[in-house]
């Protein structure tokens, strides 16, 4: 294991110190591991709070700022934060118009956010939750599909709607519509290595890939031979479109996402391949975002997220944002 860290146990805390140093517009509570905006919104607005295990950066700490999240609560690596940390984030974020929890659908996240929501309600916060479950690689699990790339689309669109002064229920409803319109699927060339264990989540041979992989080193649906980007893109596009073809009025938002150790030039190669395969399906993206936004430590590979956006979602996707990882002028 080769990593730029000090010790496995200090990675999250050290990274938060670096985040605070680089971004004076963020307030970082190191004790409780809460990242929030240094300057609070002018008046009351719906507060967006998200979090989950660390190791997926820039998700979520890199999306705090005007136009997106009000606070993020990072847990240990790949481990959702406990309820009181989530509560602390809600407290830091609530400006009087209620709090929307954006929760990726993993048992740990679901349970901890649920307990946090109860605690927050006891303290008089109005809380609503959007559960993100876009990863179609998962089938037949009572736990449901995992939440991955669509989280970025929810952060961006719900963040923009909240900034416009929409009510909590309205923002939650938008979030649910975005989730319903979103599908993701990922392929890994190499698993990430959790520094706590020092071992990759799974081992792949020099010519093997993991198809339908999760962002916590969860192995995928199946193992295959590495193939050219065009073929991989076809597999992934087809999986994402299966049973969820965008309608005629939809303006698809496409996210070509790197898993942490994927160079940008490869993501652009994948983007070309994805765009071509989508065209074969008659789908023309309205917007395409390319970069590493929902990562899995130093895993190599990519995920594709497609959101069959309506006009409002697209407008909110284009709205201003000023966060470490996503800026819109």
């Amino acid at each position: 294991m080769k990593k730029l860290i000090n010790s496995p146990g200090s990675v999250v805390d050290d990274a938060l110190v670096g985040l605070a140093a680089a971004h004076p517009a963020l307030a970082v509570d190191f004790e409780r591991r809460v990242v929030s905006r240094a300057v609070c919104p002018a008046g009351p607005k719906v507060a967006l709070v998200s979090g989950g295990g660390s190791g997926h950066e820039p998700l979520h700490i890199g999306f705090v700022g005007p136009g997106m999240l009000d606070a993020a609560c990072p847990g240990e690596l790949f481990t959702s934060p406990p309820p009181d940390r989530i509560l602390a984030a809600a407290q830091a974020a609530d400006s009087g118009a209620g709090v929307l929890f954006v929760v990726k659908n993993y048992t740990g996240d679901v349970l901890n956010f649920r307990l946090a929501a109860e605690l927050a309600a006891e303290q008089g916060h109005r809380v609503a939750t959007v559960l993100v479950d876009d990863d179609v690689a998962v089938r037949d699990s009572a736990a449901g599909r995992r939440g991955t790339g669509a989280t970025v689309v929810v952060h961006k669109t719900c963040g923009a709607l909240a900034e416009r002064g929409a009510a909590l229920e309205e923002v939650r409803e938008l979030g649910e519509r975005v989730v319903a319109a979103s599908r993701s699927f990922a392929v890994a060339l190499a698993a990430g290595t959790n520094p706590e264990t020092g071992r990759p989540g799974f081992d792949l041979a020099e010519d093997e890939i993991e198809v339908g992989v999760g962002i916590h080193g969860e192995p995928g649906r199946r193992r295959e031979r590495l193939r050219p980007a065009n073929e991989l893109a076809a597999t992934v596009v087809d999986a994402v479109l299966e049973g969820n073809r965008p309608g005629p009025g939809d303006r698809p938002i496409v996210l070509v996402n790197g898993l942490g150790a994927t160079p940008l030039i490869e993501l652009y190669v994948v983007c070309a391949a994805v765009t071509a395969r989508l065209a074969e399906h008659g789908v023309t993206p309205a917007r395409t975002l390319v970069g590493s936004y929902v990562t899995s430590l130093d895993a190599a590979g990519f995920s594709l997220t497609l959101t069959a956006a309506d006009r409002l979602m697209l407008e909110l996707w284009d709205a201003p944002a000023d966060t470490p990882a996503l800026v819109r002028a």
């Binding site: 847990g75 406990p82 048992t107 349970l111 901890n112």
Partner: peptide, 15 residues
């Protein structure tokens, strides 16, 4: 346990 563990097992064992 609920306050310190996180993950799935934290709230489950905690509660």
């Amino acid at each position: 346990l609920t306050a310190k563990v996180g993950g799935a097992s934290g709230p489950l064992y905690g509660q």
